[in-house]
């Protein structure tokens, strides 16, 4: 598997991280190096092995259907970089 700069840019775009052409050039060999090393995992025979689902044997606990959180709009909005009238705001989205 070889990652070229176009792939780096595509992945960066999926991850919503703006990168320059120079960044992509720099990252491509770096990521190739890491991915190449990771690929040794392919050597392991995992034919009859289940993927790990829980690190420590345990299953999901369920909560009762009770409203435990009251209105905390002020706390929720307190750190917002931008907002008004009780809303978070973002650049206008055209759907």
């Amino acid at each position: 598997m070889s990652v070229d700069t176009a792939t780096v840019k595509k992945v960066a775009s999926l991850a919503r991280i703006a990168i320059s052409d120079a960044d992509a050039e720099r990252l491509a060999p770096e990521l190739n190096n890491i991915l190449g090393w990771i690929e040794q995992l392919g050597e392991v025979d995992t034919a009859n092995v289940e993927p790990t689902t829980a690190v420590i044997p345990n299953s999901l606990r369920l909560r009762e259907d009770v409203v435990t959180e009251s209105d905390q709009r002020a706390a929720v909005l307190a750190n917002a970089p931008q907002g008004e009238h009780g809303f978070f705001t973002v650049p206008k989205v055209v759907e």
Partner: peptide, 29 residues
């Protein structure tokens, strides 16, 4: 950023089983 890119790549379409599922199987081993 490097780790986000690696993580995004290994989960992306077509690579999920080869990377992520295989890694979780190795984890079981």
């Amino acid at each position: 950023k490097r780790r986000i890119l690696i993580g995004t790549y290994v989960l992306s379409a077509g690579f999920y089983d080869a990377y992520y599922t295989q890694a979780q199987k190795v984890r079981t081993l």
